[in-house]
Write a protein that binds this DNA or RNA. Structure first.
Length: 241
DNA sequence: GTGAATGTTAACAG
DNA sequence: CCTGTTAACATTCA
């Protein structure tokens, strides 16, 4: 379920709970939940694929992994990994990972979040510049550089900016790299809009396709190192080495 | 029944 | 100690 846009939509769906008091918290996860009872949910924030529940006495960081799901006022048959119950309604997390963030250290750097208003293309560009020897496909999945990018956004952003996934980051011309960063952001927004409208995103030009919209052949390559598949057009995406 | 899929992190080896 | 590889987590869909 989760790439950045799914998490952002989740935040929106959870807004009615902001400012409300937790009646009961729990779940079978390893994090203790006693400290949440009777506390007010001050705010909900996101960064990339992370969701944060902000309380006065701590922060709960939630991640959905590959199979995670969060339901509002609904339950599945299996036990909840983490939940918050309020006087009216509840938030139920399944197969999520949860941990408490202690103290008031900075939670994240919004400049790297492709869905944040504070995103900084210049900052991300300089981070990419620090690892010129790496393949661009690998860096796109690095959450410290491109927070919120998942396999789908990666594949589509590379296709839309005409870059071969195995290009060396340092060999990509500055202008082209800027285009890639812009593509990642704009595709994430399309992704979000589709989720909001229809509940799913199937707007793919390359991901899991055999041909692109112009009929060009799409190649699938299995990246053994990360155990993920990338899809691209040999003809339209230039390999920089 | 089988296999694949939007992801991270802990544990281990070297 | 640092770095890279492997296992674990556990669900839904085709």
């Amino acid at each position: 379920m989760p790439e950045g846009p799914s998490i952002l939509l989740l935040k929106k769906q959870l807004q009615p709970f902001v400012g409300k008091i937790v009646k009961q918290a729990g779940g079978y996860g390893p994090m203790s939940t006693g400290w949440l009872k009777g506390k007010k949910l001050k705010d909900i924030q996101t960064h990339g694929k992370h969701l944060y529940f902000i309380f006065t006495n701590g922060v709960v960081q939630l991640h959905l992994g590959l199979f995670g799901d969060v339901l509002v006022n609904e339950r599945k048959k299996v036990n909840r990994k983490f939940y918050l119950e309020f006087a009216h309604g509840e938030i139920n997390g399944y197969v999520v990972s949860v941990k408490k963030v202690e103290g008031d250290k900075k939670l994240y750097d919004p400049r790297t979040d492709i869905l944040s208003a504070d995103f900084s293309a210049a900052h991300v560009k300089s981070l990419v510049g620090e690892q010129p020897e790496k393949d661009i496909a690998g860096l796109l999945m690095d959450q410290k550089i491109f927070a919120g990018v998942g396999n789908k956004i990666r594949v589509e952003a590379l296709y839309r900016s005409g870059i071969h996934p195995l290009s060396k980051a340092g060999k990509i011309p500055s202008k082209v790299l800027s285009k890639l960063i812009a593509s990642a952001r704009s595709y994430a927004k399309i992704f979000y809009k589709n989720l909001e409208k229809t509940g799913s995103n199937k707007d793919f030009k390359a991901y899991q396709q055999e041909h692109d919209p112009q009929g060009n052949e799409i190649t699938m390559k299995y990246l053994a190192k990360e155990k993920r598949k990338v899809y691209f057009s040999e003809r339209k995406q230039k390999l920089y080495t």
